[in-house]
Design a protein around this nucleic acid. Structure first.
Lengths: 195, 195
DNA sequence: CGAGTGACAGATTTCAATATCTGTCACTCG
DNA sequence: CGAGTGACAGATATTGAAATCTGTCACTCG
């Protein structure tokens, strides 16, 4: 089955497929190899361990969210509005993924729990986007000067809204009053940022 | 072994002991009965199911935290200071319990996950204490009038600090920068509340 | 009478044998 | 040469039979 070259990308695609089909508990490297029509030894030539393979899949998946949100962070308009839009989009995207395909979401929850380093980097990217919005807001006189740097403040905003984007809270996202709760926290945060 | 009457309280104590010793996975009603020197049928005379028994233990444990914090919510002084003290005490207590006896904490994490209704009531109590502080702050002109009621605002404060009291985040509480993160969120929240 | 018992049925858990998987490496073959 | 192989050792997962547990209830006995 060597009609196509065995690239890391092809392996990652097959791994995603296997994870989607069998879930995180039953997806094996042998399954991935079988799906590609090669021996599992070949997979190990491209990824040193099963953990590295799963990490690469996780990285890919998280990257998607970052690029989806980037335009919202850079767009024009008042910072408060952009912040609202950005946080709402983050929340909506997470909810959509959690509600739309709960099994796949659960799979990624497991993967995320396995590789905290990858997640930390992803969070840093998101906080970076938040920091940019807040910095813009300050430049336009909309937001007060932060006491301890834009990144620290962005981090605080990210932490304060944790309940609305951290997958560990996914079960709470279908509660009837979750939108009110989100609006209340968002309002509190915006008041805290304003000049 | 009928030297003492078999009361719900004695059963609960024995259950706690058994949970502490064997953990949530291996603690059985038979174990509890054995520890009390009675048959397990007797335990079922006081608690309809094993789940009800566990719930009662959880309730008792959570109650403890509420009564510990109550004096801080009612004490004198500026509301901002009381809020800081209260939230810091909540965070400190959780950290102490998580770090001091991780196994026991893990046990209670499991119990908490089992009975969301009990937890919801407990959260309501805590939010009530927060609401009292915020209401006092408003009465003294320290805090602005909340847009959507004191309870809703208190809930927002509770949600915004979720990362620092929700057991699902316990693993993050030993990170080196967690105190800075807490201080940053607290500062953001206080700015959001101020008049 | 009524708190406590213990045997019971069906559900759940344990345990050990068996199968599968992970990661390595000497090897093949284009 | 070097991408891909497949047999292998040790680790992990599966399986089904046996043991234990949950919840009930007719019963005992002070």
């Amino acid at each position: 089955m060597s009609t196509e070259a065995l690239t890391p990308d092809r392996i990652l695609e097959a791994t995603e497929e296997v994870l989607r089909r069998y879930g995180p508990g039953k997806a094996t490297v042998v399954d991935v190899a079988r799906a590609l029509g090669v021996s599992h030894g070949s997979v190990y030539r491209h990824f040193r361990t099963k953990a590295a393979l799963r990490e690469a899949v996780t990285e890919r998946w998280l990257e998607q969210a970052v690029t989806e949100l980037a335009p919202l962070a850079e767009g024009p308009g008042p910072a408060a509005e952009r912040l609202t839009t950005w946080l709402s989009a983050l929340f909506a995207a997470k909810r959509r993924k959690a509600g739309g395909d709960p099994e796949l979401f659960a799979t990624y929850e497991v993967l995320i729990g396995e590789s905290s380093a990858v997640v930390a980097e992803h969070v840093d990217h998101l906080v970076g986007q938040l920091a940019r919005i807040i910095e813009d807001g300050h430049r336009q006189g909309e937001f007060a000067a932060p006491e301890s740097g834009f990144t620290m403040t962005a981090r605080a905003v990210f932490d304060a809204t944790d309940r609305f984007h951290d997958p560990v809270h996914a079960a709470e996202w279908s509660a009837p009053d979750i939108d009110d709760a989100f609006a209340a926290v968002l309002a509190l945060v915006l008041r805290g940022l304003r000049a």
